[in-house]
């Protein structure tokens, strides 16, 4: 028996009623189509018997409502994930800046100690630069503390 016959589609879509005579003649002479027809009819009859009625099925309106709730939940989850990613990035940046500030602060203190204790000379420009580094360090430390405060519940 072949796996295919050109009339198969006509046959499958012929519905549950009697076949047109011409198709009936074809089925009588084509083993493939006879097999398809027997299987299709048997499956369709069984499928009709499977229908359990409407009593247990969720209504369209309750499904629509559930879908809307799920959509809102997914939107909220998605936004929360975006905020979590942004916070993580912000924390990484803050840590990098803090490390830079600490290095500059240490350098400032070492330089200041050297200028005051070792040679006793400190130009005005040097002092300005070192003070700026100190202020930046303090600013970063304060920022970090504020960020930690904001994160805590």
């Amino acid at each position: 028996m072949n796996d295919r016959c050109d009339r198969e589609d006509d046959l499958v879509r012929s519905g549950a009623g009697p076949l047109p005579p011409e198709l009936e003649r074809h089925v009588a002479s084509c083993g493939h189509c006879a097999s398809v027809l027997r299987t299709a009819r048997w499956l369709r009859r069984g499928a009709e018997a499977l229908d359990p009625g409407d009593e247990i099925s969720a209504t369209a309106s309750s499904l629509y409502w559930k879908a809307e709730l799920r959509r809102q939940y997914e939107v909220r989850q998605s936004r929360a994930a975006t905020v979590r990613r942004a916070l993580g990035l912000g924390r990484a940046w803050a840590a990098a800046l803090l490390a830079t500030g600490l290095i500059l602060g240490v350098r400032f203190l070492v330089g200041l100690a050297h200028a005051v204790l070792a040679d006793g000379t400190l130009s005005r420009d040097d002092l300005a630069i070192r003070l700026a580094a100190g202020v930046l360090t303090l600013g970063l430390l304060t920022g970090w503390a504020v960020l930690r405060r904001l994160r805590s519940p």
Binding site: S57, L63, A67
Partner: peptide, 17 residues
């Protein structure tokens, strides 16, 4: 029937969302 009902609902929910 019960499992079919569950999958049916999920199919519609996925379609909508």
């Amino acid at each position: 029937v019960e499992l079919a009902e569950e999958l049916l609902q999920e199919s519609y929910l996925r379609l909508l969302t």
